Amino acid sequence: MTQLTIALILFLAPLAYSPGPGNMFFAANGARFGFRATVPANLGYHAATLVVTIGIGLGFDWISREAPMFLAIIRFAGAAYVLYLAWMLARAGVMSGNDEAKPASVMDGAILLLLNPKAYLIIALMFTQFAGAADMHRTASVIWIAAVFTVNNAVAFSIYAALGDGMTARWRSPDTARFLNLSFAAILAGVAIWMLLA
């Protein structure tokens, strides 16, 4: 199991820590509201990650093979949701005195995972490489792989949220707050376009 875990983490490192919808979402929220405010969305995202990963590992991935429209629908819905998040961030005010701006919720985190086609593709790819690699029962193997995947992603997103929070801590003025909001909104919009074209 140790060998499987090390191989899995090495496999996931470039995928989990590269910029993607989840990482940019948490970086933007960390910059906007601070690291602590990203925890509920992080919990929601990774609760959904664990459920979806176990589902795919136990056979759910046949849907993407048998119904290719499924991934297309997820891709467009995910891109639309990320664009919505970008729009909300672009409209957000400065760091204080704005009651309308709220940090992402547990539900926002879960929806982001459910509408993130990159996550589905990585999960499916991961199981093509590692399913049956461990000398254990298939269900136990799937649960272990799903747990390692979920924890690894949680660490990556926490790092991005902390980096975003660090940027905010250095620049607290209204002008720079607005600049950061617009910058991260533009990055999220770019991610949404990438989701449509990838």
Rank of each mutant, 00 (worst) to 15 (best):
A131V: 00
A131W: 00
G132C: 08
G132S: 15
G132F: 11
A133R: 12
A134K: 00
A134S: 00
A134C: 07
A134L: 06
D135V: 08
D135Q: 14
D135E: 13
D135R: 10
M136S: 14
M136H: 01
M136Y: 00
H137Q: 14
H137T: 12
H137D: 15
R138Y: 07
R138F: 07
R138P: 02
T139D: 09
T139C: 05
T139M: 08
A140C: 02
A140S: 08
A140R: 06
A140F: 01
V142I: 13
V142M: 01
V142T: 01
V142S: 00
V142Y: 04
V142F: 03
I143Y: 01
I143M: 14
I143L: 15
I143Q: 06
I143V: 15
W144M: 10
W144Q: 07
W144L: 05
W144Y: 10
W144T: 00
W144N: 02
I145C: 06
I145S: 06
I145K: 06
I145R: 02
A146I: 08
A146T: 04
A146F: 04
A146H: 07
A146D: 09
A146P: 05
A146Y: 09
V148P: 03
V148Q: 07
V148W: 07
F149K: 00
F149T: 05
F149N: 10
F149V: 02
F149C: 10
T150Q: 03
T150C: 01
T150M: 08
V151Q: 03
V151R: 04
V151K: 00
N152F: 15
N152I: 01
N152R: 08
N152L: 11
N153Y: 01
N153D: 09
A154I: 03
A154S: 13
V155P: 06
V155Y: 06
V155D: 05
A156L: 11
A156S: 15
F157N: 14
F157M: 14
I159S: 00
I159Q: 01
I159P: 02
Y160C: 04
Y160W: 15
Y160A: 08
A161L: 00
A161V: 00
A161E: 03
A161R: 02
A161D: 04
A161C: 00
A162H: 02
A162Q: 11
G164V: 05
G164C: 02
D165N: 12
D165G: 09
D165E: 06
G166E: 09
G166N: 08
G166D: 10
M167R: 01
M167G: 15
M167S: 09
T168A: 13
T168I: 04
A169V: 01
R170W: 08
R170G: 12
R170C: 09
R170M: 15
R170P: 00
R170Q: 14
W171F: 12
W171Q: 11
W171C: 10
W171G: 09
R172C: 11
S173L: 12
S173E: 13
P174I: 10
P174L: 11
P174Q: 11
P174C: 10
D175K: 12
D175W: 11
D175S: 13
D175C: 12
D175F: 11
T176Y: 11
A177P: 03
A177Q: 11
